[in-house]
Simulated scan of single mutants.
Amino acid sequence: MTSAHPSLNLSDELLIAKGRHRACYQHPTNAELCIKVHLNAHDDLETIREVRYFKWLHRGHEKLAGIADYCGKVSTNLGTGYVYELVKDYDGQVSKTLEHYLKNLDDTLLQAIDISSAYREFKRALQRQYISMMNLKTYNIVFRKESETKGHFYLVDNLGSANLLPLSYFFKSIASRMLRRKFLRFESLVAERYHFSLD
């Protein structure tokens, strides 16, 4: 819940990334967290869906694998902020998106940092937990480097279902079919756009 404490000040220096609907800032007092705020206060359907799903997930999982977890709400100078785990590399830098690696590294370097192995582990983790999500995007997945060659993927956005009655939350068979379709579509998109096989 939003606390009665003074608002946190989110300045341009703390900005990590900005999308169509939300901006993500480094938490000003906790380096392990980030805060997402809406660019338009009325454009909050995505966040409402995501927060509801995280609350549902927290009832059944002590620790989520492959997902940047939701930690609650805070008051900020830019409106209500939604606090999440901030995924960072072994050297303390904010982890970069899969899109960054696909656009900036050639195939040899992609193989050298073991993108494919990390992706397969990420895929298994989400399937094992029957995670519901919207469409996977290369800019919603980050690669957390744990050394120069090894790391893990994390989904940082777009969780939950847009369906009025999200059957995938309650039926593992439906969640499994949904995940299979979305991963196949995502892998085909990456192969077509970046000429790289994830799996």
Results as ranks from 00 to 15, higher is better:
194 Y>M: 00
196 F>Q: 03
61 H>L: 12
181 R>G: 05
1 M>T: 07
159 L>N: 11
72 G>W: 14
172 K>I: 03
78 L>A: 09
75 S>L: 07
38 H>Y: 13
180 R>C: 04
193 R>V: 02
24 C>T: 07
34 C>I: 05
91 D>H: 11
77 N>E: 10
142 V>H: 08
89 D>R: 13
30 N>Q: 04
197 S>Y: 11
85 E>D: 14
85 E>R: 15
15 L>E: 10
158 N>F: 10
84 Y>Q: 05
193 R>L: 04
26 Q>D: 06
91 D>M: 07
59 R>D: 14
171 F>H: 13
83 V>W: 11
161 S>N: 05
70 Y>E: 01
184 L>S: 10
39 L>I: 04
196 F>V: 01
1 M>L: 09
75 S>V: 01
56 W>C: 04
58 H>R: 15
64 L>A: 09
195 H>C: 09
113 I>L: 08
181 R>L: 07
45 L>G: 08
27 H>D: 03
23 A>Y: 05
134 M>G: 10
184 L>H: 10
153 F>S: 00
147 S>R: 06
123 K>Q: 02
44 D>I: 03
155 L>M: 09
21 H>K: 12
54 F>W: 11
57 L>G: 02
83 V>A: 05
9 N>F: 10
96 K>R: 15
172 K>H: 14
65 A>L: 06
143 F>A: 00
34 C>T: 03
45 L>N: 15
73 K>A: 02
65 A>W: 09
140 N>C: 00
4 A>T: 11
40 N>S: 08
65 A>K: 10
153 F>L: 00
151 G>V: 03
134 M>C: 09
137 K>I: 02
153 F>Y: 08
49 R>K: 10
161 S>Y: 10
117 S>I: 04
103 K>C: 05
27 H>S: 02
95 S>M: 00
135 N>R: 08
122 F>M: 00
58 H>K: 15
82 Y>N: 00
86 L>D: 12
111 Q>L: 14
186 F>L: 03
95 S>R: 05
112 A>V: 09
162 A>L: 11
165 L>W: 12
22 R>I: 04
188 S>K: 13
145 K>S: 04
33 L>W: 13
98 L>A: 10
47 T>E: 04
46 E>C: 01
129 Q>I: 01
83 V>D: 05
132 S>C: 08
13 E>S: 13
69 D>K: 08
142 V>D: 05
136 L>D: 02
23 A>K: 06
127 Q>P: 01
90 Y>T: 04
111 Q>F: 15
24 C>Y: 13
141 I>Y: 12
177 R>L: 03
53 Y>H: 03
195 H>E: 12
87 V>F: 13
